[in-house]
């Protein structure tokens, strides 16, 4: 996917997340992009690895920096919290150049924003890791197997929380089917 289309999709995702009440810090964008790409099959082309707080894409981090440099997104600071991202007015112009791509994926972006927009970073970390192990099963695909794999990757997550996250991802995946047909 070329960079302008990618920028149009990312800025639209940020817009929709904020509309759903998301804080929209880097973690929120990272985890939502993982869902958009891995679950909703939007071909953004970012590589995700398992990192300190769950799946993380350095490519996406670089792109967020580049989007700031190109004044397509900006930082908002609300002390004492971390920064939140917001699209600039100029992002509308870039979105206007990619209307077909946006039209194609708009409902998927909306779906991800609705599912994740209201969630905090701790929950997002668990859900994103649950999605990650679901798509990359090292052992079995059952809820128990994936929960075990999640706690293996994230030892601070209790078995109960891991199970809730895996079941949560299964529910999101089931609801997502409607958009993937």
């Amino acid at each position: 996917m070329d960079r302008l289309k990618q920028a149009a999709l990312l800025t639209r995702l940020i817009e929709r997340l904020r509309e759903q009440g998301s804080w929209c810090g880097e973690t929120h964008i990272q985890k939502s992009t993982l869902f958009l790409q891995d679950l909703m099959k939007v071909p953004l082309g970012f590589d995700f690895i398992m990192y300190k707080h769950g799946p993380f894409s350095f490519d996406l981090r670089y792109e967020l920096t580049a989007l700031r440099a190109d004044e397509l997104i900006r930082i908002e600071l609300q002390r004492p919290y971390g920064p939140r991202f917001a699209p600039t007015d100029h992002s509308k112009y870039i979105q206007g150049l990619s209307l077909i791509t946006l039209g194609k994926y708009e409902d998927r972006i909306e779906f991800v924003a609705k599912q994740l927009g209201g969630k905090g970073v701790t929950e997002l970390e668990k859900l994103a890791t649950a999605l990650y192990v679901t798509h990359r099963p090292e052992t079995g695909a059952s809820v128990d197997d994936r929960s075990r794999q999640l706690t293996k990757l994230k030892p601070h997550v209790s078995s109960e929380s891991a199970r809730t996250a895996v079941e949560g991802v299964d529910r999101i995946m089931e609801e997502a089917q409607e958009y993937l047909r």
Partner: peptide, 18 residues
């Protein structure tokens, strides 16, 4: 312990090189 970006406006506004 607090996040650097939560207390410094300057660090939030370091220009990005492109």
């Amino acid at each position: 312990l607090v996040p650097s970006l939560g207390i410094s406006e300057t660090l939030n506004n370091v220009p990005d090189v492109s």
